[in-house]
């Protein structure tokens, strides 16, 4: 360069109000932008849901079949072969609730981890707050969950559990779980965008989480053997994976409330933990995702 010093060019840009290309908006502005895209988030999710099964013959019937088959497998292995049903008076509703609720978190996290990396061309071509993508993928799983819930209600009623006002508590439970899942998948979306290896690792982490979240066995029953390790019991109790499952079970399955009383197991902590986890995950996840906003297109 001759004549013009490079500094003056930057100053010239600043004087004319130009900004560094693709700078990250402030957190406040970012929240506004994401909120403004809520129609996009919902429509993107609906479109993806309906296109997901277009290549299979049974189409969207798989939305119901997949969770049912999952339950069948877990029942075969843990109910019949390994008998983890110890102490639970009505094991099928117990197991199905656990599997369905955990699957919601599991699938949200898996989908969130690839939400940015699998939409790079969209990210590069159009400008929109990238957080819309992980949000959309969680909404896809929410739509799937709502179908699963109909199946779940039928199974719970079919196995002789009465319908009661307690059932209404499933709504705040799922709402809190949704918020928790959104936070977690935002965080994983950032990790997955820059470290694709995470997608290979994630299934193992999630399976380990599943086995420690009391999906296939009752935690109070296991806790009996851990008298000397009170801290371990506290960890199991605080595990967000199990919190939302336990809340769903206590609201839908009357006999399970009886089982808990029989174990002298208090469930007072559940709501507090559920709220705390949802807030921590969402605020933390959103903040963490936003910190790399300007870099997602680089891939």
């Amino acid at each position: 360069m001759n004549g013009m010093s490079s500094e003056s060019l930057a100053q010239f840009a600043a004087r004319n109000g130009l900004k560094q290309s693709a700078a990250r908006p402030s957190l406040r502005m970012y929240i506004t932008q994401v909120w403004q895209r809520r129609t996009f988030i919902w429509n993107f999710a609906s479109a993806k849901t309906s296109s997901m099964y277009t290549s299979s013959r049974l189409g969207q019937l798989w939305q119901v079949l997949t969770p049912l088959l999952n339950v069948a497998v877990y029942f075969l292995i843990f109910g019949l072969l390994l008998s983890t049903s110890r102490g639970v008076s009505n094991f099928i509703p117990f197991l199905v609730t656990g599997v369905f609720i955990f699957t919601f978190t599991q699938r949200s996290v898996t989908a969130g981890a690839k939400s940015v990396s699998s939409n790079l061309s969209l990210i590069r071509a159009l400008h929109f707050p990238r957080a819309s993508l992980p949000f959309s993928y969680v909404i896809i799983e929410l739509q799937q969950l709502l179908i699963s819930m109909v199946v779940l209600f039928a199974i719970v009623l079919g196995f002789g559990e009465p319908l009661g006002f307690q059932w209404l508590l499933i709504i705040p439970t799922l709402a809190l779980q949704l918020v928790f899942n959104m936070g977690l998948s935002l965080a994983l979306a950032r990790v997955g965008a820059f470290t694709p290896d995470v997608q290979q690792l994630l299934p193992f982490v999630l399976r380990t989480w599943l086995y420690t979240s009391g999906v296939i066995f009752a935690i109070p029953e296991v806790a009996k053997k851990m008298h000397n390790h009170q801290w371990l019991i506290e960890i199991l109790k605080a595990n967000p994976g199990s919190i939302y499952i336990e809340l769903a079970r206590t609201s839908l399955i009357k006999s399970y409330r009886g089982d808990l009383a029989g174990w002298h197991w208090s469930d007072n902590h559940l709501w507090w933990y559920a709220i705390a986890w949802a807030v921590i995950a969402f605020v933390g996840g959103f903040w963490y995702f936003h910190r790399a906003e300007e870099r997602y297109g680089r891939g």
Binding site: A10, A13, A14, L18, K19, Q20, A22, A125, H127
Partner: peptide, 10 residues
């Protein structure tokens, strides 16, 4: 550096 007004679309 690159300075722009508004978000470029590629």
């Amino acid at each position: 550096g690159v300075y722009t007004d508004g978000q470029p679309s590629l």
